[in-house]
Design a protein around this nucleic acid. Sequence first.
DNA 1: CAGTGAAGTGGACTATGGTCCGGTTGTGCC
DNA 2: GGCACAACCGGACCATAGTCCACTTCACTG
Lengths: 218, 218
Amino acid sequence: MRGRDAADAAAPTTLSVASVTSGPPRRERADAARNRRRILDAAGELFAAHGVENVSMDAVAAASGVGKGTLFRRFGDRAGLAAALLDERESVLQEAILRGPAPLGPGEGGDEPEPADRAEAFVRAYLDYAFENLELVRASETASPGARYRIGAYRFWRHHLTLLMTAGGHPPQTAELLAEALLAPLGADQLTAQQAEGREPAAIADAVAWQARRITRA
Amino acid sequence: MRGRDAADAAAPTTLSVASVTSGPPRRERADAARNRRRILDAAGELFAAHGVENVSMDAVAAASGVGKGTLFRRFGDRAGLAAALLDERESVLQEAILRGPAPLGPGEGGDEPEPADRAEAFVRAYLDYAFENLELVRASETASPGARYRIGAYRFWRHHLTLLMTAGGHPPQTAELLAEALLAPLGADQLTAQQAEGREPAAIADAVAWQARRITRA
DNA sequence: CAGTGAAGTGGACTATGGTCCGGTTGTGCC
DNA sequence: GGCACAACCGGACCATAGTCCACTTCACTG
């Protein structure tokens, strides 16, 4: 991609998964907006009907009544498309983390929740979200190697956990490394593999949540 | 692939990365053996010269003087080829874990090393290995989504860590989940991303090693 | 040493993600 | 209204992973 569209767009409070649907700096042309909607709608239906893995980008383009070039121009690549589809549900979670009630969010002023509690709550909330949208999340993370770490949302999760780790008593450098280490088992590929092995989401959540508590306190 | 070669082969003590180079149940035909060597040699050179990412399977086939069909028949896919190339160095590590001196291995009979010490030693040894062969390991893990978890070696690492976790006092179910969670930040993709972000291998090792200790004890 | 069939071979073929660019169209400005 | 130009469009095009299968070769057997 020559990466114009997919790259620009503002930097809102919540780091959108791909910063695609948020308001662009200069208003988007009407035909472009129309095509975006069409693509998103068509992709949503196709994915729901046949499973994300089984839908080619060609198919999405065809079903949207749009050329392949347009599709890629708007979303960059397969991961970008998946990310855009995820965007809305994901920012709900981000919102809850930033401003929601404790322990997931900071809660009302006064009684600060424990970092370990917040970390555990985050892990559980994230896993709920991820398992509910597993195919899509996976597509957004594994389209190309390293895609996961480039997504805006990853930065958000990492930043959040880094803050919690710091609050837990870790020095800044270490905090970020630990945040990353804690995020690793939440990768969609890992979750998919575990699920394929017959592991229950609840069991996974328990294990990672325990780990999160344990790690948070220095 | 119709998966004959890449799938069969015996199950030796050390689970080879792809069980490709170990002795097959029925002796391999001479021409096949010769081609395998050719391919491995050519691939090794090409990878070293241009970087794993920049070498297409076509190029490997051409440089080996072998048809593409042969290449894929023997190694299944890109990941399989990378795995075969890794096989030797990797089984050195496995050997050290199974029978080497403490704390990485079990040591001489008598003074059993602490599980936490062994877990830390494993993490550090594995990271040494992984960083030294990062491109290849990455290719073996990310050629197709989920490839990592299908590789024989992954099972080996997981089994080893599961044992240590159990020894650390965790119930079996949890132990395996924690092993998996601890393996996650050792994924080549993750390591590559961290490195790209300017993180030092030593710092990463310290963080994950600390985490390993912390997690091992129930 | 010839016969036999399993194992092995190679390259044409398919599928698909992603790129390119000549032509079109919407928008702000005079 | 009409001009100018950036933004946008679409589909031909390319590269590459992986599949298929008609044909060849090895190694064992009588």
